[in-house]
Computed example of a mutant assay.
Amino acid sequence: MQFLFTWLITAISLLITAYVIPGIFIKSFFAATFAAIVMGVINAIVRPILILFTFPLTFLSLGLFLFVVNAIAFSLVSYLTPGFSIDTFWDALFGSIILSLVSGFFGQLLEPKE
């Protein structure tokens, strides 16, 4: 049940992010839900490998390079998802920040009570 909850929050957050950032386009809610699944796979498999390889840069930048890693992962999601596109790297960077904020906000606001 928690998986479905997180999946829907991520899909809705993607739609809100696409509405806020003009360079991000999502054709439908189905594309957003599919992108949420792809994002989960990318964040579970590819992102840790990117973090491992970019650890020296992340260490030297005091963690700020993680924003770039998140933007790369976000761009990879758009590349692998039909109906979801990002125009520029800056759109991916700001989009990943907005997505994190919106998803975290909705996750806290709508968190199921135990």
Results as ranks from 00 to 15, higher is better:
residue 65 F to P: 10
residue 37 I to K: 01
residue 16 I to D: 10
residue 31 A to P: 02
residue 92 A to T: 00
residue 29 F to V: 00
residue 106 F to A: 05
residue 56 P to V: 08
residue 78 S to D: 00
residue 49 I to V: 04
residue 1 M to G: 13
residue 17 T to P: 10
residue 42 I to A: 00
residue 101 L to Q: 12
residue 3 F to T: 15
residue 48 P to I: 12
residue 99 L to I: 00
residue 37 I to C: 03
residue 29 F to D: 07
residue 1 M to V: 04
residue 45 I to F: 13
residue 90 W to A: 12
residue 43 N to D: 13
residue 69 V to M: 03
residue 24 I to C: 06
residue 86 I to M: 07
residue 87 D to S: 14
residue 108 Q to M: 15
residue 16 I to N: 03
residue 66 L to T: 03
residue 83 G to W: 01
residue 40 G to L: 03
residue 19 Y to H: 07
residue 70 N to R: 03
residue 38 V to G: 10
residue 114 E to M: 10
residue 95 G to K: 00
residue 52 L to C: 14
residue 57 L to C: 02
residue 6 T to E: 15
residue 75 S to V: 07
residue 63 G to A: 11
residue 42 I to N: 12
residue 48 P to G: 08
residue 94 F to C: 05
residue 13 S to Q: 04
residue 18 A to P: 05
residue 45 I to D: 04
residue 34 F to P: 15
residue 92 A to W: 02
residue 47 R to Q: 07
residue 86 I to C: 02
residue 81 T to D: 09
residue 53 F to V: 05
residue 104 G to A: 08
residue 62 L to I: 10
residue 65 F to M: 12
residue 21 I to H: 01
residue 86 I to F: 05
residue 38 V to F: 14
residue 14 L to F: 07
residue 15 L to P: 05
residue 114 E to T: 15
residue 18 A to W: 07
residue 26 I to N: 04
